[in-house]
Amino acid sequence: MEFLTTFINGLSLGGVYALIALGYTMVYGIAKMLNFAHGDIIMVGGYTIMVFFNMTGLPLAAAGVAVVFCIVTGVLIEKLAYKPLRGASPLAVLITAIGVSYLLESLAQIIFGSDHKMVILNHWGTLEIGAFSVSYNTIVTLSSAIAIMIALTLFVNRTKVGKAMLAVSEDRDAASLMGISVNNIITITFAIGSALAAVAGAFYILKTPDVSTTMGSMPGIKAFTAAVIGGIGSIPGAMLGGLLLGIIETACLAVPALAPFAIAIEFGLLIIILLVKPTGILGKKKREKV
């Protein structure tokens, strides 16, 4: 039963990583850039939730406002910082993303100070069946994350905009020739990624009621790892990588002897997978014509 509890907790943490990883992988797949400021959008979401939850006491409404605010922030960042660099070298875009990341953290520090803030959104209690016990917070996080992932998959595969996104990720020039506005698709991708980051921020606070300027850094790096493990650019890959990483981390932390090495084991897994399958678990090989 303890195994099952750990497994559910791991899936739930993995769900949070997967939501963040989706943002990384979609932006990479479509805009061909690594948006290292993505983790900081979680932080923006966290602070927005804190402010609105303290004002209204309504966790769902606060999460809703955070989603809207993060979409606006994400789109603004894309328009102001990344769009002008569309034709620039990948290195210039990467450095800009790192710059945006520090800018967001510094702004948050100026506005809210550097102290950690505690935000306790909700305690829904614990589900206990015999020796099995898991908090409803975990169940809500896990089920919502799964629902969002299914919705995103349907959106990408079934809707016109989703198919346009796939087309842009496949071949940007050909998609443009077919009448798809690449710029609009990239903006929509940033909006979706930022919304997912805001939701991940809300789930993060449900798990650990702590908001700080660097709260998005480590989950961001882990989610990026998850996206690479799953195969960067692949939506199911990001989900799989996120869930896998969450389960491994939780399992390591549940075994006292392994706990200090949890991070080393997670990143060790990344190295092994990249050695065996350099494109990640679900990544596709691309043929290059010479």
Binding site: E2, T5, T6, N9, S12, L13, V16, S135, T138, Y204, K207, T208, D210, M218, P219, E249, T250, A251, L253, A254, A259, A262, I263
Partner: peptide, 10 residues
């Protein structure tokens, strides 16, 4: 590994 203390509580 401060994201979630559920395992340690367990």
């Amino acid at each position: 590994t401060k994201t979630d203390f559920s395992s340690q509580v367990q």
